[in-house]
Amino acid sequence: MQKLPAWPAAVCDLVCVLVFTLVGTASHASAGSPGHVLAVAAPFLVGLAVGWLAARAWRAPAQPWPTGVAVWFATVVLGVMLRPLFTGGFAWTFTLVTAGFLAVTMIGWRMLATVARRRAAS
């Protein structure tokens, strides 16, 4: 089974965070300012970078476990913890939506990639 290079995986994770940010800001009618969108995304991008480093995700970037879960966990936890420094406060409902959306997207693309690689190999 061929290993996925790190850069497409990093781009996929980046897209997941940016889509999360764009959908969230649009649903709260605050998508007009690119600066605001960046401020909302920033804590999660920091969490994503730390997650990639902590998990050494470049070694097996498309593995749902443990790579995907570790990167997702760091993105959510650090993003939610850093969020008050960038844009807003803390809300449990926001945390649950964040965790759910990013789990479905960040772990989900890895699961789809794993299935596709297994099918291609057989």
Rank of each mutant, 00 (worst) to 15 (best):
W65A: 10
S27R: 15
F86C: 05
A74G: 10
L53Y: 06
A62F: 10
L102T: 09
T87P: 05
L48P: 03
F90M: 02
I107C: 07
L18A: 10
V17C: 12
A41L: 02
H28E: 13
G32M: 13
V71Q: 06
A9C: 05
V37Q: 09
L38T: 11
A42K: 00
V97L: 00
V15Y: 03
A55C: 06
V23F: 11
R110N: 11
P66Y: 08
F44M: 01
P43C: 01
A60K: 06
S27E: 15
V50I: 01
V104G: 11
F86T: 05
G89R: 12
L96K: 05
R56N: 12
L38V: 14
A49Y: 08
P64F: 05
P66F: 02
S27T: 13
V76R: 07
R56Y: 06
A116D: 08
G88I: 04
V80R: 03
R110I: 02
A42Y: 02
W58H: 13
V71C: 05
L53K: 01
A74F: 09
L45I: 09
L78H: 02
W58L: 06
H36W: 14
F101A: 10
A116K: 13
G68F: 02
F94N: 10
V80A: 04
D13V: 13
W109K: 04
V23E: 01
A42T: 03
T25G: 10
F20M: 06
V23A: 04
G24Q: 15
M81D: 00
M111I: 13
F94R: 09
A42L: 01
R119C: 10
V50H: 04
R110Y: 09
V71N: 12
A120K: 12
A62T: 05
A9S: 12
K3Q: 14
R117K: 08
F101K: 03
A31D: 14
A9L: 02
L102P: 08
L22S: 12
C12L: 13
T87K: 13
V19D: 07
Q2V: 11
G32H: 15
T75C: 08
